[in-house]
Nucleic acid binder design. Structure first.
Lengths: 259, 259
DNA sequence: ATAAGACCTAACGTTACGTGAGATACAAGA
DNA sequence: TCTTGTATCTCACGTAACGTTAGGTCTTAT
């Protein structure tokens, strides 16, 4: 029935470090039962109980400051506090789940695409991450139903499309420099068209709508946040643009000539 | 096609704070394209791409230091890195899920037990939290099968038992001071016995086993970590002990008289 | 030229301790 | 009683990723 422990024994008994006990003393969370004349800390069984309380609350996700309040407030509203805490933890969990989903998606893209370019990869992941913001942005341009059709595709299909896109972008980057009108390049652009159509069956009219609104958009975008990071650098982008133009002309879509 | 932004415009365009850009510059993660004679930072579209990269990797859970390495290492092993990161996130998720489960359990206990004593509450939560450590500890005393029988009870039953325990402990604390041999107190002890039997049908022989090992245990425990925090203070615990003794005697179990 | 913004560089605050460094305190043996 | 050896003490800096003043400087429009 020994009832006094030096800080060392106490730390072993409670599985905490000496430094932690020092710290808790310092911030007034857990003071030792008494001090020796020389200033050493001594603890008793009562402090074990207090520390258990602290450890338990920490385990429930409370910060030391919150624990302070809980311990000193005599009228701690258990239920409300726990419910709030639960909400906070659920939020954290959802964030992490989103991260995991994105990582999974990333792994799908990488899977059979061994030598994927980092820029392409980042841009695809970014587009997944930004999906919600994209939605907000597009909402002002296209009727909502269309947006939902684009984004409510099943997870598995989404992954497959990302994979195809990754492949295509890789091939496009490799083909960079070739004549935009060449058969091989136009073939790649056709694959791009296929992917877009797979995403949304009526891509043609979607593109037309977007082109109409192009001018006001360009203006708006100037000082609003950048949403779509490109997988291509300036040169590549221009080159893809030329190839697209040629492709559209063949299909009967006409593009403005801006630069 | 403006291609230069002051730090303010750049921060708006990329949805980051000026301070963040300062910081990234400071640690060499993202340097501005160039400085004015007066030392002001100017960014171009190239920096937008770099920043997107950083933001994306942060979103995947990487630290800025890791991002540094990823960006500067030319041979970043995407797949391995992402897989590792996924593992880390899964771990975090599991921790949080455990916390949520415990909080749920806590809410069940509180539910219809409006005025529960904080000490009782903490001790019950603590026992949930410590479950795994308990298992390790008990493993040395009791055959494993028994342990599994105790701990593999379904979640719902576990919660109900916690609730009953909370109720019982509350009643016991209220009854503290009454004659241990009185009918009302013995009635409460009987409920304790019922709960224990509900937990594990053959509590009787379990108790006997524990009593046999009592001496060596007491010794061992002296400088090993404390595992079972009590819901009762010293006085209450002694009093419950007396009541238990009387109860056991009536049942034919004999306890050592230690103090 | 001057005033209004935009921007600059410190430098401290945040969380819950970890990690030394150098100075004391205490218990035990000579 | 003196001397060790070990336990413990008090600073005090480091961590991650910025937020937040504070006080001075650059740019630009009038």
């Amino acid at each position: 029935m020994s009832a006094q422990y030096g800080i060392g024994d106490f730390s072993k008994k409670t599985n905490t470090t000496v430094r932690t006990l020092h710290y808790y003393d310092e911030i007034g969370l857990l003071k030792p039962a008494f001090l020796s004349d020389g200033g050493r800390r001594y603890y008793t069984d009562a402090e074990i109980v207090k520390l258990q309380k602290i450890v338990t609350l920490k385990y429930l996700g409370y910060s030391l400051e919150e624990i302070q309040e809980i311990i000193h407030e005599k009228d701690w509203n258990l239920k409300q506090s726990i419910q709030f805490q639960r909400g906070e933890m659920i939020k954290k969990k959802q964030q992490i789940e989103q991260m995991i989903r994105t990582l999974d998606h990333a792994l799908t893209i990488i899977e059979d695409n061994q030598t994927i370019d980092a820029t392409i990869f980042i841009s695809l992941i970014n587009s997944i991450q930004m999906e919600n913001e994209h939605r907000e942005f597009l909402k002002e341009l296209i009727p909502e139903i269309t947006i939902n059709e684009i984004y409510n595709i099943p997870e598995e299909k989404h992954k497959q499309l990302s994979k195809r896109t990754a492949n295509l972008f890789t091939n496009l980057k490799e083909a960079y420099g070739q004549e935009p009108s060449s058969t091989s390049v136009q073939h790649l652009i056709d694959e791009l068209w296929q992917i877009l159509n797979d995403l949304y069956p009526d891509t043609k009219s979607l593109i037309e709508t977007l082109m109409e609104k192009d001018e006001e958009l360009t203006q708006q975008l100037d000082d609003s946040p950048v949403l779509f990071p490109s997988a291509f650098n300036a040169g590549e982008e221009k080159w893809v643009g030329q190839a697209l133009e040629i492709y559209f002309k063949k299909m009967g879509l006409i593009l403005d000539e801006n630069d």
